[in-house]
Amino acid sequence: MNAPIIADGVLIQRYMQGNQAAFETLLNRHRNRIFTSIYLLVNDRYLAEDIFQETFIKIINNIQAGKYNHEDKFLPWAMRIARNLSIDTIRSRKRMPVVVDSEGRDVFDCLGISVQSREDEQINQDEISALKHWIRELPEEQREVLILRNYAELSFKEIAVLTNTNINTCIGRMHYAILNLRKKMQKNTVRVK
């Protein structure tokens, strides 16, 4: 017989009372959903590792500082932290200056150590998935709703609160994301994955 699942809120309370195992359970329960969501949002495995770590360190600090509101659900709260950190990272990467050589090429391209090439290398190491590429090609707002619904498993209502939009906008974006993915799937004879 399976042991009953202990609610996230109970685990947080136990952790606050000194139970480290409760925190480990919480981390193991949500790590893949949160990590995959971050990874698909920032498109870089190394950055995703950093953001994931930073997210959980903020979670720990907030819990221990008594800043976790027990009326909130843990996952949407954690995803809010993860999403904000992901957005900050994407913005700061966009601000990074590109250093070009005399012919106007990005010097890091020549060295083969640019963020993009590191990501390409990771893609080669991974089992290349057509679906992953199609998800990346979706317009940002559609991609975000799809990731938050399918990977973070947030409800449309929770996504609406998180992204500061209304529920119908979220549903509409998800609908377009699905339509776009269907089109890409139908257009490609390659089997997904």
Binding site: Q20, F35, T36, Q53, F56, I60, L131, Y151, K193
Partner: peptide, 30 residues
Amino acid sequence: ATISSESSSLMCSPSNTTLSIILEESRSQL
């Protein structure tokens, strides 16, 4: 259902190093 099922194949985990750092931090905070 196909899209959801294929999506689940993209699920991935953080590295053990990252998890160890987080657990160490949680212990230390405690």
